[in-house]
């Protein structure tokens, strides 16, 4: 099967559609017959990253690349950036708005969850925007 490569836009505060990219990614992974454990890891990573762009950024996009041996996922946004990545990586640390918290987000578990489920994770951020790279290897 040929690689799957898609890009999706993400709108700021579009909580109603949050999770759509994770859902589409999961569907594609299931179609390709990956193990339930692998599908769950990737889906959690994509979901958490998607939510982060929705609730924390001015908007951005996701790039989903699924190959036979590797899934490469990239999320980019247009700012305002993460002031302190070290703090953001701590479980329970959150700068989410009251609006996000009212909707069940902002537990401060997004980035720690991503780190836990991914095989490789790189986070770069400045005022212009944040780029999150995740890799998931199909063979452990």
């Amino acid at each position: 099967m040929s690689d799957y490569l898609e890009e999706y836009p993400i709108e700021r505060n579009d909580i109603g559609n949050a999770g759509t990219i994770a859902s589409l990614t999961k569907r594609e992974l299931k179609k390709r017959g990956f193990s339930p454990q692998f599908i769950k890891r990737v889906t959690i990573g994509v979901y958490e990253a998607e939510i982060n762009v929705v609730i924390h950024s001015y908007g951005g996009n996701a790039r989903i690349h699924i190959g036979d041996d590797l899934c490469e996922i990239t999320f980019c946004d247009r700012g305002p950036g993460i002031p302190n990545i070290e703090n953001a990586m701590q479980a329970g640390f959150s700068t989410a708005s009251p609006y996000a918290i009212e909707n069940g987000f902002g537990a401060g578990m997004g980035l720690p969850n991503i780190k836990a489920v991914s095989d490789e994770m790189t986070l770069e951020s400045n005022e212009e925007g944040t780029q999150l790279f995740m890799k998931f290897y199909t063979q452990q």
Partner: peptide, 13 residues
């Protein structure tokens, strides 16, 4: 739970 990240990360099929 009332926190979606918690639900997402901890629940199973």
């Amino acid at each position: 739970s009332d926190l979606l990240s918690n639900v997402m990360g901890q629940t199973e099929e």
